[in-house]
Every structure is written in C-alpha cells, then in structure tokens.
Write a protein that binds this DNA or RNA. Structure first.
Lengths: 168, 168
DNA sequence: GGAAACTGTTTTACGGGTGTAATACCTGCT
DNA sequence: AGCAGGTATTACACCCGTAAAACAGTTTCC
C-alpha cells in the first residue's frame, strides 16, 4: 500500500503539531483531490469539442430531462447561479445548440430546448465521455467501484440533508 | 436506503437511452458532488476570517512544511499556477500574514515565511476548521469514514499515477 | 576569460468564467 | 390601482490560468 498526497500532508501536520485531530482531513482531502484530478481529466475531451464542462452539463441537463426547461430550473439542476446560466445560454444559442421559446401565460419565463444540432452533439459526446471515464477508472475493479460508489452515496445523502440540498 | 442526486440523474439518462453504460457516472458524479458540497461547507468559516480557501491552503502549506518555501514550490504544493500564487502572496503580504526574504546565492528566488501574525492565524483557524469538518462528517461513524478514506486513497494513488502526479 | 545561447524563476498582461447585487419586468392578489 | 413575490438579465468585481515578458544564472564554445 503506497502513500498518496493526502497521507504525506497529514504526516507533515502531525510532525508540526501531534495533537491535531487530522481524521476529517484524510477523508475530505482525498475526496477533493480525487475530484480535482477527475475533473481535469474529463475536461480534455470536452475542450476538443469546443465545450466547457459547465456548458456540457447544461446541455446534458436539457437532454436527460427530455423536456424544455426554464433558465431557473437549469440553474438549480446544474448547481450554478442564474447569471452564469444566462450567459451560457447566450453563447450556446449563438452556436445554434439551444433554442428558446417564450411562455404563453407568463412572459417572464423562457423554455429552453436543444436544437437538432445540440441533441446530436450531446448524443455523440456522452458515450465517448463515458468510455473515457471508464478507462480513467480502470485501475479499480468492478467490485471496488460499486462498493466505493455505494459508500459515497451514503455520505452524499447525509451531506445533502445536512448542508441543504444544494446551493440555491 | 434513500436516493441521492446522482442516482436520480442516472435514472433520467437510463430512461432516455437505456443502452448507456452509466457505471462511471455514478462514481465520478458522487465524488464531484461530495466535493462541491464539502467545499461549500468549508468555505463559510474561512470567509468569516476574511480568507479564501486558496489563501488558507497557501498559508497552511507554509505552516505545515515548517520552513521557508519559494513561490514556485508553493505553486506545486497548492496545485495552482504561478501567477495565482504571486497575486495571493501580494495580498497576504499586504495584510501582514507572510513575509519574503531574497535568496543570497540566486537572486531570482524568494523565500516565503509566515509572520508571527500569520502563524497565529493558521494555528487558531485550523483546529476550528477541523472541528467543523468533524461535525459535517458526523453522519458517518468512525468505521465508515476510515473505510471510505482507505478506498479513496487506493483510487487516488491510481489517478495520480495515471493522470500525472498533479498539474505541472 | 567572455560573449552567446540556454535554462529557470517570478512577475505582468490579458481574456474568460463566475457569483453577488442591482435592475427590469411580469404575475397574481388585495 | 398598487403591492408582494418571483423570474430573467445586466453590471460589477473577483479570481484564475495561459502566455509573454523581465530578470538572473549556467553552460558552451571560441
């Protein structure tokens, strides 16, 4: 069993102050570091398609819900601010990947949907992205992955309850 | 066992396209989401002290290595760009938290160290931060935490080898 | 020995993306 | 009509990373 970065950081802290309860750091540090590495890896194939990860998330949210969404719903769905969604929608619309439709009853609200081109892009990109992710994770066998996934799910449920179901 | 966000997203994808191999998404999605929630939670107490998480990471890196570091070393240690470190150092120096010393042999390089005030701030903040993290994680018992931590360590070692030991 | 080319470190310039806060607009209710 | 509440956009400021610049050392080669 070799050391990871977090273990060596923890060891440094212990050397400086042995009374520190570094328990939480080990778990949280590893989650953060894994997330950073994975996101970095995932961004590469997306950039090749001219998309930001945030843009891809937005397109994916529309695609997977399979209906028109309002900008507000998209902000909640992608865990980002309304302003960010507004700007992303503008550039995606200029690129012809999404389309807007005004609501008949309430003229404040828009409905966003994918254009034919946008849908094709997502449907081409997602399987490729998933295949790539599979290779990135290939160091773990099937059993380890599902076990890890299940335990993270447990933590995630706790956090969502404790912290508040997501940024609003 | 209740559902988390990732499970419902996966279900949506399956409904739209049942042939998708969503395995990787479950694990990566959960890691990312946990990281996002945890970071959001951790930022709150830091902002109360007038610090960014990135600034705190920088101060912590100097504190835990217990010696003077150059800006370049700090960039590697905190996984951020040299330019970002330069700017953070400038504001931290203006606040009187860090101090610089030019190298005698090589006048290109600086050595950064904490001021008395900077050291006191870190030493006050870190235990508070760790205690807060412990409460955030309190939904999991000790055993679950260490098990999860160990499995993530295994993944992290794989990723560091595969992706390249960090941004360089 | 000394100039030139090369390497390495830090800083500056610039562009892009994000969030908070302020604004504009709309609806539904009293 | 006027007000309360909600939705989208705009304005502003911040932080970051890439790329270029500024600067200091080191090596090479005559």
């Amino acid at each position: 069993m070799t050391d990871d970065i977090v273990a060596s950081v923890v060891r440094q802290w212990q050397a400086v102050n042995p009374e520190l309860d570094t328990g939480p750091m080990e778990l949280i540090g590893r989650i953060n570091r894994c997330a950073a590495l994975l996101q970095q890896a995932e961004d590469a194939p997306l950039r090749a398609a001219g998309l930001t990860r945030a843009e891809f998330d937005l397109l994916g949210a529309v695609r997977r819900t399979d209906r028109e969404l309002t900008p507000g719903e998209l902000a909640r769905e992608t865990f980002s601010s309304g302003a960010a969604v507004t700007k992303r929608l503008r550039v995606l619309q200029e690129r012809g990947l999404v389309d807007r439709r005004g609501d008949d009853r309430d003229r404040r609200v828009n409905h966003i949907r994918l254009t034919e081109q946008g849908r094709e892009l997502v449907d081409m990109l997602l399987p490729r992205q998933l295949a790539y992710e599979r290779t990135v994770l290939s160091g773990l066998d099937e059993q380890s992955r599902t076990r890890l996934s299940a335990q993270l799910s447990e933590l995630l449920v706790q956090l969502e309850g404790r912290i508040g179901g997501g940024p609003r």
